[in-house]
Amino acid sequence: MGAGRDSLPAMAMVMVQLGFAGLNIVSKLAMDAGMNPFVMVAYRQVIATVFLAPFAFFYERKTRMRMTGTVLFQIFLCSIFGATLNQLLYFVGLKLSTPTIACALSNTLPAITFILAAGSAKVLGTAICVGGSMLMTFYKGSLVRLPPSSIHWRYAEEVAGEVPSAAGEEMVLGATLVVASCFAWSVWFIIQAKMSENFASPYTSTAIMSLMASLECLAVGAAVERKAAGWAVGWDIRLVAAFYTGIVGSGLAFGLMSWCIQRRGPLFVSMFSPLLLVIVAVLGWAIMGEKIYLGSMVGSVLIVGGLYLVLWGKGRELRGTSSTAGKSFDEERELGFATRSPRPTS
């Protein structure tokens, strides 16, 4: 039973990455079909709030901890960095690039989170990670010959075929925005970890965060898209994207990530992001007919290798200092390397 409980955070994060993979595909199709990314993010937050509110009320009404001014301010910061800035930057970057490139650059998240959480990182691993990101952005290389997929989604192929390929300048801008979103997301990881120490109610905090982000994103969306037609959705991919990103991408994913951060720390959660690259690359090739080039493959290998070199090196460093200097469990959990269950909160 203990081993099963210990594996729950890992299983939850695999589910989150599967959900994010579908989010990248569906939201990219919706934007290619004409949906404004600012409008989509606003709808996402509203739907996430409506979805999470019942869970927060029924599951945590008896165990909900006391809300203080400090906790409320931390949730506000989470809404700014984890929802509004992170998602707006990411979706605009995704619109200007491709799902595979956006997910590959998102693999800088563990290194950024580690630097923000710990203040230092293994120089070699970080350099390799950044080098891989730059390689994917600036070098295309030859086409990798893969066998044709038999499960292409015809609608996705038709929509993708109607959209002109992004120019090199747009790709660079899109990649820059995705990396910027990773910085905002990493800040959310750190704030969420601090906040969960005093308010261990992940559904409630995520619901409040989504409500605050709804107001923020609606204000930004209204300033960017002032025509009512830009907010209209029908029975099409845009409606699917709004509900999928709201329920799966924010409601379920952020609720599970908040729970996992509370149990295992921010670095544990962020180090699952390389899995997203593999899933999206496979789905992009199988469903959307996306081509894979040598630069993308080599850059992806460098990103994943560099990230795990950072994690492996720091893991050895923490184990060494823990045995000699008696590093506390709370410090290890803060960095995501703790293996024991967290102490119960009062």
Rank of each mutant, 00 (worst) to 15 (best):
W188T: 00
T137Y: 08
I101P: 07
V26Q: 01
C217W: 07
R5L: 12
V248E: 03
A102C: 11
L72D: 05
V144H: 05
S97E: 10
V269W: 03
L252C: 11
L116R: 06
V179G: 00
M13L: 15
V179N: 00
D236H: 03
A83H: 12
L307M: 13
I292W: 15
T339E: 13
G336A: 15
A127F: 15
W185D: 01
Y43I: 03
P147H: 10
E162W: 09
M15I: 10
R238S: 01
M15S: 11
Y293R: 07
Y308V: 12
E331T: 15
T324V: 14
T84N: 05
A229K: 11
V14N: 00
W285S: 00
P9W: 03
S106M: 09
V298K: 00
L109N: 11
K140W: 07
Y203I: 05
A21I: 06
G336D: 13
L94D: 03
W231Y: 07
L307G: 11
M65F: 07
T324W: 15
A253P: 01
S210N: 06
M195Y: 01
A229M: 07
A33P: 09
V224S: 05
I151G: 00
R61P: 06
L143N: 05
M212V: 01
F51E: 04
M288A: 06
G246F: 00
S165M: 12
S196L: 04
M195G: 02
S7Q: 07
P99E: 02
D6T: 02
K140H: 14
L294V: 13
I287C: 01
P99R: 05
G289W: 06
R226N: 02
L85M: 14
G4E: 03
P54M: 12
V16N: 12
I112L: 15
S97R: 02
A127N: 12
A42D: 12
A223E: 04
G326N: 10
E290H: 11
F81T: 10
V159M: 04
K327P: 08
R264E: 06
A83W: 10
K314V: 01
V220A: 10
E170H: 12
V224F: 06
G141V: 08
T113I: 08
F272H: 04
L96A: 11
F55C: 14
V14S: 08
V187A: 13
E290M: 08
L8A: 10
L311Q: 10
E197D: 05
F51K: 05
R145Q: 09
I128D: 02
F20S: 04
A338K: 12
A281C: 07
Q45P: 05
R263E: 05
T84M: 13
G313W: 13
M257I: 02
F76L: 15
M271Q: 08
A56H: 08
L215H: 04
T49M: 15
R316G: 13
A56T: 05
E290C: 09
F243P: 01
W285F: 09
K95N: 13
W312I: 07
Q17H: 10
V233I: 14
L294P: 01
A160K: 14
R333W: 13
N24E: 12
G313Y: 09
C182W: 02
S258W: 09
G295W: 08
S201E: 03
A117R: 07
K314H: 12
L211C: 08
T108F: 06
V159I: 15
V144W: 11
